[in-house]
Measured scan of single mutants.
Amino acid sequence: TRVETATETAWISLVTALHLVLGLSAVLGLL
């Protein structure tokens, strides 16, 4: 259904953003 697709997209966006933040923090930590 469309609701499931929207929820899945939201989760993917959330996980991606989380990985970006963690990756950025790791890079800044190494610097």
Rank of each mutant, 00 (worst) to 15 (best):
E4Q: 07
T5L: 03
W11V: 12
T1W: 08
T7S: 11
A26M: 04
T5D: 09
A17W: 00
G23C: 15
L31I: 13
V3K: 06
L30C: 15
V15Q: 02
L28A: 02
L14D: 01
L31T: 12
T5F: 01
L18D: 15
V21H: 14
V21E: 06
T1A: 05
L14H: 14
V27C: 03
T5G: 10
L30Y: 07
T1I: 03
V15N: 01
A26T: 08
G29K: 05
L31C: 15
G23Q: 00
E8W: 11
A17C: 10
A6N: 00
S13F: 15
W11I: 08
T1E: 05
E4F: 07
I12N: 13
W11Y: 11
S25M: 15
A10G: 08
T7C: 12
E8I: 06
H19K: 00
A17G: 09
L31E: 01
L28D: 01
L28F: 06
A26F: 04
T9M: 00
T16L: 04
V21C: 10
L22K: 09
H19G: 15
G23N: 14
T7P: 12
H19R: 10
H19T: 10
S13L: 15
E4D: 06
S13W: 00
G23I: 12
V15K: 11
L20G: 09
T7G: 08
A26G: 08
L22N: 04
V27A: 06
T1K: 01
V27S: 12
R2F: 03
V21G: 12
L24G: 03
A6V: 01
L24Q: 08
W11Q: 02
H19Y: 13
L18H: 09
L14Q: 12
G23L: 06
T7A: 15
V21N: 09
T16A: 13
T7H: 02
A10S: 05
V3N: 11
T1C: 10
T1L: 10
W11N: 03
T1N: 12
V21Q: 04
E8C: 09
L30H: 05
L24S: 05
L20K: 13
S13V: 15
W11D: 04
A26P: 02
L30F: 10
L20N: 03
L20P: 04
V27N: 09
E8V: 01
T1R: 09
E8A: 04
L30S: 05
T7M: 14
L20S: 08
A17Y: 05
L18K: 14
V3I: 07
V3E: 06
T5I: 03
V27T: 01
A26V: 06
I12H: 14
I12G: 11
